Simulated scan of single mutants.
Amino acid sequence: MSIPGSLQDIPAIRRFSPTVLCAGHPTEAQLTACARAGVEVVINLSLHGQPYSLPDEAGLLASLGVEYIHIPVIWDVPTSEDVARFFEAMRTTAGRSTLVHCVKNMRVTAFLALYAIHQGGDREHWLWWIRETWEPDEYPAWAGLLATISPVH
């Protein structure tokens, strides 16, 4: 399934699944376009109060009728607790049209790949999928985190 034309300008946007898009940080106009395109949930893995942050992403999305979930993941210190919170968010929003974003779609591709692997997806496929966006082996904290997740049996 392709990405709607109104959303193609969002930085590093990609499709993870039929209902989940992932991207770098969208603008207010791009989030509004997401709502118009049917996005029901936005999960933000970046931090508030940064130069790239929107002044009130939660308020904007609430005004558009879009559920907002914020899981602030510190770039240099991603934790298994962050991953667990993300897995829970993915579980509770399953089947709903969702945009997951961070700054450059690096945290997000890693967390989505971890989620896919945890759900039984092929580890090598999903590591390759991450590498289409960035190289996690260049960041020890991320390489370590990626090594920790195993499929549910």
Rank of each mutant, 00 (worst) to 15 (best):
3 I>M: 07
67 E>M: 07
150 S>L: 14
142 W>R: 08
104 K>L: 09
72 P>W: 09
142 W>M: 03
114 L>F: 05
33 A>C: 02
77 V>P: 09
96 R>H: 07
50 Q>M: 12
36 R>G: 11
26 P>E: 09
131 R>K: 12
79 T>N: 08
141 A>W: 03
12 A>K: 08
105 N>S: 02
100 V>R: 08
98 T>P: 01
153 H>A: 15
119 Q>I: 03
40 E>A: 05
50 Q>P: 04
3 I>D: 03
34 C>T: 01
31 L>Y: 05
122 D>S: 10
33 A>D: 02
151 P>G: 11
88 E>I: 15
56 D>Q: 10
11 P>V: 00
110 A>N: 13
28 E>G: 08
82 D>A: 14
7 L>S: 07
100 V>L: 04
122 D>A: 10
73 V>N: 12
57 E>F: 04
11 P>W: 00
3 I>A: 04
145 L>V: 04
101 H>I: 00
81 E>P: 02
4 P>A: 06
1 M>H: 15
111 F>K: 01
74 I>N: 08
96 R>V: 01
19 T>Q: 15
148 T>W: 08
152 V>L: 15
1 M>I: 10
87 F>N: 11
74 I>M: 10
50 Q>N: 07
146 L>S: 00
25 H>C: 11
128 W>P: 03
115 Y>R: 11
127 L>Y: 11
105 N>P: 02
37 A>T: 00
138 E>L: 14
23 A>W: 00
49 G>W: 09
26 P>V: 03
11 P>T: 00
47 L>T: 04
143 A>H: 12
2 S>K: 12
134 W>V: 01
20 V>H: 06
152 V>K: 12
132 E>I: 01
63 S>Y: 01
112 L>I: 02
74 I>R: 12
81 E>H: 12
95 G>E: 04
43 I>S: 04
79 T>I: 02
73 V>F: 13
92 T>S: 13
139 Y>V: 04
58 A>F: 10
48 H>R: 14
77 V>R: 15
3 I>T: 02
18 P>D: 13
53 S>W: 09
54 L>A: 06
67 E>F: 07
133 T>M: 09
51 P>Y: 05
148 T>E: 14
140 P>D: 00
21 L>I: 06
58 A>V: 11
121 G>Y: 07
44 N>S: 10
63 S>V: 00
63 S>A: 00
149 I>C: 10
27 T>A: 13
26 P>C: 10
14 R>L: 01
115 Y>G: 06
95 G>N: 05
109 T>I: 03
27 T>S: 15
113 A>R: 03
82 D>Y: 15
